[in-house]
Amino acid sequence: MNYIWLALMVISLVVGAFTGNLGAVTAAAVDYAQTAVDISLGLIGIMAFWLGIMKIAEEGGIIKILSRAIRPISKFLFPEIPPDHPAIGTMLMNIIANWLGLGNAATPLGLKAMKELQKLNKSEDTATNAMVVFLALNTASITFIPMTVIAVRAKLGSANPFEIISTAVFASTCATITAVTAAKLMQRLPGIRKSDPNRLPKTTEEGDNNA
């Protein structure tokens, strides 16, 4: 991430200087900082709503039922997570929300799942293998009705706005399989294995170390 971020910054500034877009680059920085805050704060309501519902679901045992239901798949994708851990059920709900194109629900459920995964993490600031696999499922996410682009197609007078569903589902399924496979293979590379927080000795339970 360090290198990517650095590269984006340096390339923008250098190219901006050469093309005379430097003013626009600076303006964009200010603009997007504001956008980022708007997006984050915009999540508060929907986030609180789903976290509340999920808490009831958890205590009512629904999450556990879901977790058990997909045991064969989760054992393969997330071998390091106990099969009836709430993380599994929450991740399943996030994936289903993605499939159905429920963007409003998918993000809060995904963040709830991250929270559960973080409980199993021995490190404060380093991603576990399970997190990377979960992110791979999400970044390539399959959507059965990509509503945004369908709406644009309809507005522009397409004869059949939905005709791209099958091609998009095919491409995103391939993308998902590739991303998960890549995550699974890369976690075996020596350099990446070394940074696996699960290899750390069990840390003492200290809640106050959140610098």
Partner: peptide, 13 residues
């Protein structure tokens, strides 16, 4: 969740 070291997440994404 405060994860700063994303390891191979970006690459696989």
């Amino acid at each position: 969740v405060g994860i700063r070291k994303s390891r191979h997440a970006i690459a696989s994404g």
